[in-house]
Amino acid sequence: MTPTVDSKTRHSANRTVLRSAIFAAALSLGLAGLVSVTSPAAAQDATYSADEVKQHFKQLKTRSLKATGSTRALCIGTRDECNPNGAAEGGGQVAVTQENADGQTDTAAATPDAPLVVDPETNAIDDAFNLLVSFEYASARLSTSAQANLREFAKAIQDPDLSTAKFVIEGHTDGIGSESYNQRLSEDRAQAVTQYLINLGVNRGRLTTVAYGESRPKVSDINDPANRRVESKLILEQ
């Protein structure tokens, strides 16, 4: 004899199956959402490698040590003060080294005989490495690409050859907005970069944070987006 199931029992069983299906679908969506939030940061490729950062600063460190015994190889002052002829030709913005298409310093263009310009305020060598740090609009929140770049930078400066070196982290903005607003924004962004590097294991004592707002544009058009940047510079060893 075939067992019979009353309608009430069938209805209860159907509701149980339906609840299980809804729960499974919700769990699947939740996991998918979690992956979509976390995977971009994890998969984000850096714009430059740790090896490129090491090459830049190791070469600069070698040049600075050789220059210590020769005052002819150092100029204490601004870029314009140390190269007044170049300042007139470059609209007041003198590049100590050339840069390639992606904005990174071309270390091959910096000849060993070129003078090292040292900022009198921070004692940093004015041969910067552009960290290519991007932020969310009008904020100091690091983008995922910025975090990827900073992970490479942190890895590079903890190399044994650079482990005792100290760096200045500079915040800059373009000229859009008020001078006071841009100053605060550059401070917040430079601090965000410094704190992220510290979180990655870089000793706080190796990093000096400064902010220049719109006062030190990279290019002569103060509103050019190229002026929105965070740079790192090697501090001259005493």
Rank of each mutant, 00 (worst) to 15 (best):
T2W: 00
P3V: 02
T4L: 05
R10M: 04
N14P: 04
T16A: 15
L18C: 10
L27Q: 03
L29T: 11
A32N: 04
A50C: 01
V53Q: 00
V53C: 02
V53P: 06
Q55F: 09
Q55W: 07
L65A: 15
L65T: 14
G69N: 11
G69F: 11
L74M: 11
C75E: 13
G77F: 06
T78L: 10
D80I: 14
C82G: 04
P84D: 10
P84K: 06
G90D: 15
G90W: 14
G92P: 11
A95Y: 11
V96M: 09
V96D: 10
T97A: 14
Q98W: 03
Q98Y: 04
G103L: 11
Q104C: 06
D106E: 12
T107A: 08
D113N: 15
P115Y: 08
V118T: 08
V118I: 14
V118P: 06
T122N: 00
A124H: 03
I125Y: 01
I125T: 01
D127G: 06
D127I: 10
F129Q: 04
F129G: 05
L132E: 14
V133F: 06
E136Q: 02
Y137Q: 08
S139Q: 01
L142K: 01
N149F: 00
R151C: 03
A156V: 00
I157M: 03
D161C: 03
L162C: 03
V168T: 02
I169L: 09
E170W: 12
E170H: 13
G171H: 08
S178W: 04
S178L: 05
Q183P: 07
Q183M: 14
R184G: 09
S186N: 04
S186L: 04
D188I: 06
R189T: 01
T194A: 13
Y196K: 05
I198H: 07
L200F: 01
S215W: 15
V219D: 13
D224H: 15
A226L: 14
N227M: 12
R228W: 11
R228I: 09
R228P: 05
R229D: 13
E231V: 13
E231I: 15
